[in-house]
Write a protein that binds this DNA or RNA. Structure first.
Lengths: 206, 206, 206, 206
DNA sequence: GATGAATGAGCATTCATTCAT
DNA sequence: CATGAATGAATGCTCATTCAT
């Protein structure tokens, strides 16, 4: 499974095998039953270890959720950076952002589904501060990417608050629909039209 | 408060006052603490009645959540229908859908916030069937509205699966950001650009 | 049992029967196994009710301990006040304090044993403030009783800090020994010599 | 700190440094949080060793508590014996007992505080037998010291059960008050009056 | 000897729901 | 109809102790 690879990137080495097993089991449970309804016992059964061990490695349930969430965030960021590299224009970068997003969700549907349902839990839980921090960093990074002097005119006319929603809103909406089974076609099938739509939306704002 | 009016439309009359009080208290609690963390006792304290009374009127916690959720759904549908009335072209209808959505969320932030967090709970709970039913009806309705023979060409080239996301994705994305405090400007402030972006997105798909 | 009477004085009426039953069972358990080792389940079994009911009536384990502790404190205070009434001299009052203490411990060994082991727990737990309050009141009361103008000379020469220990120290020491089985004779058997010793100690301090 | 010296007397040599560190850390934890609430992990953090090491040296938590308790007992006995040496009369010996007690508690408040709270735990735990044994020895010793033929008359009239409380009760009471912060003056400040009170109490018993 | 990952029984507490009054 | 005492299964979490490395 693709999750295994993500986890191995994040927690490499033989000694972290158990950590990866626990996270993998937790992800499956959270997606099956939801965050709150999943019990530590559910996870324990699925990865065949002891309750104490789970707590030994992740502190508590919130810690487990946060570890998984940041894991997804990191992997998504890695791929986004890859896609943006080598783009020259603002238009190409907007397209890269859309493509990166759609490809990642298509490749990691489990993590993506988890991310959607865990966002608010992490944002309110004890790891809220770290999440806010990472979000700030990501936003700064994205803003830098789009600050292209040549095409600044195009983007400058769009209100800063609105820009992220214009770029990623439709892609995210479709991904939600796909993950909840309301549509069948995998997100990356619509990469082209969604990237074009994003750029057209920006243009329409002028 | 705006919620009071929505509740009075849904549960009119003096005799339903207690019902409205309970729903109002429940909404506040759910938004404050989240769905699962809110206890019946929390709600009871907030509307100063007895546990038994809440169960008498709504059966159980899921019933309470469903009542509130369908209440939001109905009110949103009512406004959407109002906005679409009198529109002649597909473009005008797309704009009406976007405006209706943004205006409703701006007017009922509490209900909107609840709706976002309760969707998956209702979709999995004992009222899943009714929810699916209502969603089907809404989708059929929207499809009828957009089936304008004259402009069919424009829309026909857009994959059916993608259309809803193209129309409402960006608006929804911005509303989520507003409800979680990530942006300040109320959604209806961007009604114009978001409606234009939706139509431009459709055009870009051809 | 004597405890029943104490509890009926503190929680009178038929409707409080369950409350009394729970407290009575808790007292027995705490004395049998110690404070920490006693589980709510132990208590539940002993009074044949449900866990939830215990929490319904006392909030939590600390609440149960505090209720029992303050019950003992109140009963002891009541008897002390009775004994002091009608005494005319400081000497008679010192004797009354000693007699009251010894008679109470002899009559309520269970409560007394509990009191010794629960004191520090209550003093550190969430009811510390109320305990401090009650202790202040008791100290003020005792100081007033002993502020006899005629015999002030005798007591005035004793440092305030030392006085309580001089009066009650030996009696308390013997009661501890009795409650832990190190001696056999009931405390009230030594009321006379202990009262005389207390007064002699004060005299020896001049 | 004074505890270090006591521990070096009890566990001398360089090789026992770790043992002393563990005991020192344990004492601090037990006094900070109480016996039961203190975890092996708390102690481990404070002396920066491993869990396994603590178990290697003391067997288990009870062993740790017992080691600390007997350490206090031994040190107290040593000082008591010192003080009694060279006394000729029963009165002088009673005074020596009182002085020894007050001086030791004043010098070792940490150990004394621990001793008060650990007594019942040790008396009920797996080291109960050894504790009973040591208590018996101490009592026999004290009885021998006080069996002064010349002044036997004075003491003989006091019931054997009552004697220890008469001698040490007030001192102990004051020490408890000091250790729990209810009074400020260090116990040894009242050595003279408390020794006189003890002897006067005995005299008052005739 | 030293380490700390692993174990798992056990506990306080919560909370949706019922039902006698 | 309304009330709130009573129920008890279920859960997150702790912690003394063991043992492979």
């Amino acid at each position: 499974m693709a999750i295994q690879e993500v986890l191995e990137r994040q927690y490499p080495g033989r000694r972290a095998q158990l950590k990866r097993d626990i996270l993998s089991a937790a992800l499956a449970c959270f997606n099956d039953k939801g965050l709150e309804p999943t019990t530590i016992e559910d996870i324990r059964v699925r990865c065949d270890t002891s309750v104490g061990n789970i707590y030994h490695h992740f502190g508590n349930k919130d810690g487990l959720i946060a570890a998984l969430y940041f894991c997804a965030l990191d992997d998504q960021a890695r791929q986004r950076t890859d896609y943006v590299k080598g783009t020259a224009s603002a238009e190409a970068r907007v397209a890269a952002l859309v493509h990166a997003y759609l490809d990642w969700v298509t490749a990691e549907p489990e993590l993506a589904r988890f991310q959607f349902q865990a966002r608010s839990a992490v944002a309110q839980g004890p790891n809220a501060a770290e999440l806010a921090d990472r979000n700030r960093q990501r936003n700064r990074q994205v803003r830098e990417w789009l600050a292209d002097p040549e095409q600044l005119g195009q983007l400058a006319s769009v209100p800063m608050e609105l820009l992220p929603s214009l770029i990623i809103g439709q892609a995210e909406s479709y991904c939600r629909a796909w993950l909840s089974g309301r549509v069948q076609s995998p997100p990356d099938r619509f990469s082209e039209p969604l990237a074009r739509a994003a750029w057209a939306s920006i243009a329409a704002c002028r």
